[in-house]
Structures are given as C-alpha cells and as structure tokens.
Nucleic acid binder design. Structure first.
Lengths: 201, 201
DNA sequence: CCTACCGATCGGTAGG
DNA sequence: CCTACCGATCGGTAGG
C-alpha cells in the first residue's frame, strides 16, 4: 500500500509540473503561483507546495520538465541522423516545429525563461544558464563534425554558427508569438540553410 | 504658480517613468509595482499612481519612454547615414551598442517585453506589437533602398533580411545577459555583415 | 502630493 | 493530501 501511495504522489507531482510548465509558457516562471496551480488542479495550496517545499524548487522542477520536452521533441529524433550537417538540420527543423506547435502554448520556453531570468541571480537562473550551455556545447560539437566532414568550409567558427542559429529560432519565436506570422517557420527554415551554406532549399 | 506646479508634475512623472523603465529592464513590466516605485522614489503609492491612474497606463508610458530611448540612441544617429546599406549598418551597430551599454541595465527592453507580453492580450501588448511593427517597416524600407542602389542583390527578400537581422540582436542580447559573454557584440557585428553580403569585416 | 484604508493574493507554516 | 492561519504586498479608492 505504501507502494501505491508513493506512485500516486509521483503522479500528482508530475501533473503539477506539467501544468506549471504550461502556465510558465504564457505567464513566465514568476506567473506560476502556488494558488493559481492549486485552483487549476483543484487542490489546496499546501497540497501543491507539499511536493516541492518552496516555489524555487518548483521552478527548478519546471526547468527539468522543459529539458525533457526538448530532449524528446528535438534531440532524440535528431540523433537518428548522421552527426554533422544532417543532424544539425534535423535539430533546427525539430526545434522550429516545437516552437510552432502547441506543446509549448506560448512559444519557446527557453527564450521566455532566459529573458525573464537573465537579470535575477539565483539557483533558477544558474540552472537555466547551465542547461542552455549544455545545449550550445552539443550544437558546437555538431558544427565541428560538419567541418571535419567537409560539409562546412574549413575555418568555420563553430561558436559563431551556433550563435547565428540561435538567433534564427529566437526571431521565429517572436514573429510567431507576437505577430502571429505563420510565415515565420519558413523564414527560419531559409535562414538556417543560408547559415549552413546550403542554397535556397 | 499654476505654471510651476504643472512643470513640477511633469518632472515627477518623467522621474517615475524613467525609474519604471529601469525596473522593467531587469524584472519585466509586471515587476514594475506601484509600491516598489513609491519606495524607490520616496513617494507614497497614491502619489505615484496619481500620474497614471492605473498600472496599465503606467506601462504604456514606459513603452513610450523606451521608444524614445531607442530613437535617440539608434534611429537619430543612423539617420545621418545615407539610406540603404550604410544606414542599415549604422542602425545595427547602434542597436548592438545600446543593448551592450547600461542605458538598459538588463539588455534589450524590446526583447524582454516581447517575450513577456506575447501571450497576454491587451492594450500594452498591442502597443508593443505596433511599435515593433513600425520599426520593422522602417527597416524593410532601408533594405529596399539598398536593393535599388545595387548594394544588395536583386531578388533579395527584404522581410527575410529584417527577420535575420532581428535574430542577431536577440542572440547577442541573450549571450550578453545570460552568459555575460563580451564576445557577443563582435559575433553580432560579424553576423550582420554576413547577412548583408559583406565579407568578414 | 499625502494618510488611511479596501479586498485579493502572495509564499509559506502549523498541525493534523 | 487537508483546513486554518501568518505577515507582506498587490492595485486601487476615498477624502483631503
């Protein structure tokens, strides 16, 4: 019976985090309040908080959940492609797909969290910066593979390419969310290919 | 005497908006609370609110102040350059300078406001979208001039160029604010020149 | 511009 | 997982 209780508690926790991620997507991490979560899940505030102890720990759990979303939607499928250019293209395309779809109802969680937290020191900001760093490093490695394979010109600066690719996703996200411009994914698609030295495609 | 009073009131209002813009830069527009402004300016809450009536009108005033900052720091100096490529470069360089400096203590106000507000319908969001639209249109016109002058290839899609340029600034902003990476302005500089078809410069 | 106040909501705790 | 409660803060109003 203790088994069943623990499993139920894990379920509840997962439900809370999932809902919190959706709220954060439209109202920011600061918009995730205990009371709001409690109302929306028809629980008491203390019932919610019980799973995390503090709001900060809840926010860290939300970051983890976003990482999992991203891994599942972007990283895992891209890993099926050959390292280098093909995998880079897959990552970008899946990422653009993710921010255009409704898994994240208000666009790229990372972009929103980064601008929200960049001026607020603390463990949540640190965890976010670390997650984005890990992603950047993985991207940089892929660009390196592409250069080694001759898919990108010798002398390419991998960090510069990663920088520019990130900008494309951010621009697409804004155009999509603020202007509701459905051409944004196509523009992003074209920009990615230009950065990676592929003709109009 | 009514004159002096009115002038003093205008001054106070300007002081409030200026402070609010700084707070918004690090904590978002939602972080601009009446109580916090009052404390920080050593006024009463009602003394602050008196100048705006509601928080929403205060937020709109902050948007206007940010527009003025941007015009003064970016648009006005760029207007001294010839329309087309030279002016585009000036705009981008001044913009990168603005987000790297300390006029906006936590980076690009527009980027922060856009991600904060994109999921929250209302007059503030509308005003923001309109301001960004006006800016995009002005940029698009400059790209058009550059194409006509033969500074950019025939067949260039101006909106695509503007899209990519915006991404560069957003990427630089994130790299600067979240990672404290001082190479970000240089990377942005290089990316802008690549987008505009200029060799490494 | 102020004091004094309103109802609502915040994160969190006590105790069960 | 709950009820009941805490002090702090929110946007805003009344009245001067």
């Amino acid at each position: 019976m203790a088994r069943r209780t623990a499993a139920a508690a894990r379920d509840t926790r997962a439900r809370i985090v999932h809902r919190a991620l959706r709220i954060a997507s439209t109202d920011g991490l600061e918009g995730v309040t205990i009371g709001r979560l409690a109302d929306s899940l028809e629980m008491s505030k203390s019932g919610v908080l019980n799973h995390f102890r503090t709001k900060e720990l809840l926010q860290l759990a939300v970051l983890e959940a976003a990482s999992e979303d991203f891994r599942r939607a972007v990283w895992d499928p891209a890993r099926e492609e050959k390292p280098g250019l093909k995998r880079l293209l897959a990552i970008e395309d899946k990422w653009i797909e993710l921010i255009s779809g409704d898994a994240w109802p208000n666009g790229c969680f990372w972009t929103a969290a980064a601008t929200e937290l960049d001026g607020r020191p603390g463990p949540v900001r640190d965890a976010l910066a670390e997650a984005l760093d890990r992603f950047d490093q993985a991207m940089t490695r892929q660009v390196g593979h592409a250069v080694e394979a001759g898919e990108l010109p010798q002398g390419t600066d991998p960090e510069q390419v990663v920088f520019e690719l990130r900008g494309v996703v951010m621009a697409a996200n804004q155009q999509l969310q603020l202007n509701g411009d459905r051409k944004a994914p196509r523009r992003a698609h074209a920009a990615v290919r230009r950065i990676l030295g592929l003709g109009a495609a």
